[in-house]
Computed example of a mutant assay.
Amino acid sequence: MIVPTAGAALLITWQTRHIKSELLHNIAVVFWICANAYWMLTEFYSKDDSLRYYAVIPFSLGLIVIAYYYIGNFEKKYFKSKNSTL
Rank of each mutant, 00 (worst) to 15 (best):
V56Y: 09
N83K: 14
C34S: 05
I19L: 08
L23P: 03
I57Y: 07
V65Y: 00
K47M: 13
Y53F: 08
F79R: 13
A28E: 01
P58A: 03
I66P: 03
I19W: 07
F44R: 15
A35N: 00
N83W: 07
W32N: 07
A55I: 06
T5D: 14
F44T: 10
K82C: 06
E22F: 01
I2V: 05
V56P: 02
N83A: 11
E43T: 02
P4N: 10
T16F: 02
K76C: 04
A35L: 00
V65H: 08
S50G: 01
I12L: 13
I27R: 00
A6N: 13
E75G: 05
V3R: 13
C34N: 11
A8G: 09
T13M: 06
K20A: 12
L23T: 05
K20L: 10
P4A: 12
L41R: 07
Y45S: 04
S60A: 08
T5E: 15
V29R: 08
N83F: 09
Q15W: 13
G72F: 00
W14F: 06
V30H: 05
W14H: 08
L86A: 14
K77T: 04
C34V: 09
E22Y: 10
V29H: 03
S60L: 03
I64D: 07
R17T: 06
K82H: 01
I27K: 03
L10I: 01
W14I: 13
K80D: 10
W39K: 14
L10P: 04
K80R: 12
F44D: 15
F31K: 02
Y69L: 14
A37T: 02
F59G: 05
I19E: 11
I2Y: 09
Y68C: 07
A55E: 09
A67W: 06
W32K: 08
